[in-house]
C-alpha cells in the first residue's frame, strides 16, 4: 500500500488537523481553488454526526455536495475519509461507528459522481479526538468524518 502523501496547509483561525486529528499551526489562506488547503478551508473538509449515529444532516449533505463537485473538478486528487467518534463509548464500538460514518460520506460522494476508486475510508474510533474537553461542546466536534484530499500515486 502506497503511503498517503499529504500536502497540508491550514487556514484561518484556530488549529486545523492532519490525519488522525493532530493539531498543526495555522497557515496562510490559499487562494488557489485547486489546492488541498482551499478544499479544507473553503469547501469544508468535515461533517458532524449525532451521538451513536452515522446519518447525514442537511448541513452535512450541503458540505458533501460541495466536496463532490470539487473532487470532480480536481480529478488528480484522491480522498481519504477519516471516521471519528467521541469518547463516550467503548473502544471497539467506536471503531465500528467511525467506519460507519466514513462509509456514509464515501457512499454520498460516490453517489454524486466521484469515482469509487478515488475514495478510501479509515476509522480512528475515539483514538484521535480533535477537541479534548469532556463535555458536549467537544464531543460534538469529535463526532466527525474528515475528508483528506491529496494528489498521490496509483493507490492509497
Amino acid at each position: 500500500m502506497t503511503r498517503f502523501i499529504l500536502v497540508l496547509a491550514c487556514l484561518g483561525l484556530a488549529a486545523c488537523t492532519q490525519p488522525g486529528g493532530q493539531a498543526t499551526a495555522p497557515a496562510q489562506p490559499s487562494a488557489d481553488p485547486t489546492s488541498a488547503a482551499y478544499f479544507q478551508s473553503s469547501v469544508g473538509d468535515r461533517v458532524l454526526f449525532p451521538v451513536n449515529e452515522a446519518t447525514l444532516s442537511p448541513a452535512a449533505r450541503g458540505t458533501l455536495e460541495a466536496q463532490a463537485r470539487w473532487l470532480i473538478d480536481n480529478p488528480s486528487y484522491r480522498a481519504l475519509i477519516e471516521g471519528h467518534a467521541d469518547e463516550q463509548g467503548t473502544r471497539e464500538y467506536n471503531l465500528a461507528l467511525g467506519a460507519r460514518r466514513a462509509a456514509a460520506v464515501q457512499e454520498f460522494l460516490v453517489a454524486r459522481g466521484v469515482a469509487d476508486g478515488r475514495v478510501e475510508t479509515v476509522t480512528f474510533g475515539k483514538e484521535r479526538p480533535l477537541a479534548i474537553c469532556s463535555d458536549e461542546s467537544c464531543y460534538a466536534r469529535n463526532r466527525r468524518a474528515v475528508t483528506v484530499v491529496a494528489t498521490g500515486g496509483a493507490g492509497v
Partner: peptide, 9 residues
Amino acid sequence: YSYASRGNT
C-alpha cells in the same frame, strides 16, 4: 475478530 467493509462491521 471484527472486519469492517463498506461501513458494516
